[in-house]
């Protein structure tokens, strides 16, 4: 049963006000019910701020700080947003493009550590063109600025968003950052995305 406008509003409104209220009434009648937020959406996603461009000498220190923050969040109370019964996101952090791919970006959402000691993660990548041939991009955890632990490889689509599921090994607190590199055989590996 639709609510009766005259009953709702009464007769003490001016004509202008009445017209405005009737407009709202009609909008409410045509609108779908506003959904309730589930528990996993009770709070906004926690996303790391995109790192500002820094002089090379400060990059390593920044990466170390970012990793320390990540580990602190991941191992502390952190977030517990689940993904519809899938992994629970403990922390999310942003990556940004480097050099000619400065417009590229990625979001890494790290889940709960598995019984086998790995950290499942989902990475959403934007603006990274498909690698040539059979080449694949590689996601590394870094230590002191150098790629150290491979989390997995992936390819991207022509445009828009690509989501990939990978695993980070070991103890995250041993590492100082994340990078995506071009894993093109026979070519010099270069960093394309970094935290």
């Amino acid at each position: 049963m639709n609510p009766d406008f005259d009953t709702l509003v009464g007769d003490d409104a001016t004509p202008d006000e009445l017209a405005a209220l009737r407009h709202v009434h009609e909008l409410l009648l045509s609108a779908t019910p506003a959904p309730e937020l589930p528990r996993r959406l009770a709070r906004p996603p926690r996303i790391r701020r995109r790192a500002p461009r820094l002089p090379i000498g400060r990059v390593r220190a920044t990466l170390a700080l970012a990793a320390a923050t990540l580990v602190g969040i991941a191992l502390g109370s952190g977030l517990s947003l689940d993904h519809g019964g899938r992994d629970q996101t403990r922390v999310a952090l942003a990556m940004h493009g480097v050099g000619p791919l400065a417009a590229a970006s990625a979001l890494i959402e790290v889940g709960q550590r598995s019984p086998r000691g790995k950290w499942p993660l989902e990475m959403s990548v934007r603006g990274l063109p498909p690698p040539p041939g059979n080449a694949r991009y590689e996601l590394y955890l870094t230590r002191k600025g150098e790629p150290d632990a491979l989390c997995g490889t992936f390819r991207t689509r022509q445009a828009g968003l690509t989501r990939v599921r990978l695993d980070a090994p070991g103890d995250l607190d041993e590492y100082t950052g994340w990078i995506v590199t071009s894993g093109i055989p026979g070519r010099h590996t270069r960093v394309l995305l970094t935290t």
């Binding site: 779908t32 959406l41 996303i47 519809g84 968003l161």
Partner: peptide, 24 residues
Amino acid sequence: ALARLGDRGRAEDAVQETFASIWR
């Protein structure tokens, strides 16, 4: 998201993706 995607799980994912985009 519910109107566009028609699936609760995907719609909830879309909310997180939307706010990640807003932040960025």
